[in-house]
């Protein structure tokens, strides 16, 4: 695992590079709707957030989850249901979806956290499959059709999300807010212990840290932010479907994270944009998308193990 890390200790110098990178990213995202279709951008932002949440867990906590689709998808269903059937305003619908994912994360975490390595991954996969079959059967999810025509409504009573650009501004704000929360988490007293556990778990234990508690908190945080991404996504597309709870979604987020750079700050964002763009522009090739995606992934892993941002950071000698 360690060899995959693009991250080095953030010295003051890297700190400055990260601020510059953040400003560039924010500037690009503000300007982007002028040239790129906003719906595409919002989709990419939701996946970017999902990948950042996943990266927090794997890249900084060293925990491999194969079940993260459960959090994305469940939050999507709950917020879609809340907005459509209960008529809740979007802010409460998103909050509800996020809360559902957080709770689910707590349940998954409590069951899986004592398992190590691949066993942990397998337990999360198994649990997420149970969630998938529940969503397939449960009446409120609409089965194969999903929940459609979810109203976007008025946020806080005065922000009209039916305006595409307003919606974009809200999605961008959510993304940046959560991105900064993740950044802070990584650079917090908690983040230090988490990194220590990732680097050497027995040693962290021998220093008196009850590592399961830290891993559990990391897992719940990651689930919550994945849920926030899923809830936001369901309002953007006005749709919640089985795709988002399917195991292949759990795989896709791994792909995005590794492609962009595991354990980097900006890698998952870049990885998500690349994958979403690829799916968009390669859509004409039908089933070939998966194969092309797979091939690109293999090439990336072989050529630059650290991912796009990981390699860039290495060249610039900065942790990005």
């Amino acid at each position: 695992m360690t060899t995959l890390h693009g991250a080095t200790a953030a010295t003051g110098d890297s700190g400055r590079a990260q601020i510059v990178a953040f400003l560039i990213m924010t500037g690009l995202l503000i300007a982007a709707p002028a040239v790129i279709y906003p719906i595409f951008l919002m989709k990419a932002l939701c996946f970017a957030l999902f990948a950042c949440a996943f990266n927090l867990l794997l890249g900084f906590g060293g925990l491999v989850s194969f079940g993260h689709a459960a959090f994305l998808g469940t939050a999507g269903y709950v917020s879609a249901h809340a907005a459509k059937e209960w008529g809740l305003p979007p802010e409460l619908a998103i909050l509800g979806g996020t809360a559902a994912a957080t709770l689910l994360g707590l349940v998954f975490g409590l069951i899986a956290i004592r398992r190590q390595g691949i066993y942990f991954a397998m337990v999360t996969l198994a649990l997420s499959q149970m969630v998938y079959f529940y969503c397939l059967q449960a009446p409120f999810t609409g089965g194969e059709d999903g929940i459609q025509a979810v109203p976007r409504g008025m946020m806080f009573g005065f922000i009209d999300l039916r305006q595409t650009m307003t919606l974009y501004a809200v999605v961008l704000t959510i993304f940046l807010g959560a991105f900064l929360l993740i950044y802070r988490t990584i650079h917090s007293p908690f983040g230090q212990v988490l990194k220590a556990i990732r680097e050497n778990e027995p040693r962290a234990i021998s220093l008196g840290y009850r590592v399961d508690h830290y891993k559990l908190l990391a897992f719940v945080l990651s689930a919550a932010i994945s849920g926030l991404a899923g809830a936001t996504k369901s309002l953007v597309f006005q749709l919640a479907t089985l795709t988002d709870v399917h195991w292949s979604m759990s795989g896709e987020v791994v792909l995005m994270t590794l492609l962009g750079g595991l354990g980097t700050i900006f890698g998952p964002v870049v990885g998500a944009f690349v994958i979403v763009a690829m799916q968009n522009y390669l859509a004409q090739f039908g089933a070939w998308v998966t194969i092309i995606q797979g091939a690109i992934f293999v090439i990336c892993v072989l050529l630059f193990r650290r991912g796009i941002i990981g390699e860039l950071g290495r060249v610039l000698k900065k942790a990005l």
């Binding site: 802070r184 988490t185 650079h187 983040g191 230090q192 212990v193 220590a196 962290a204 220093l207 908190l217």
Partner: peptide
């Protein structure tokens, strides 16, 4: 070394605090 010292501060779960 600081990771070991840090435990006594009892802030090690505070993910919202700056390092």
């Amino acid at each position: 070394v600081r990771v070991a010292l840090q435990r006594r501060l009892a802030t090690s779960f505070q993910f919202w605090k700056s390092e």
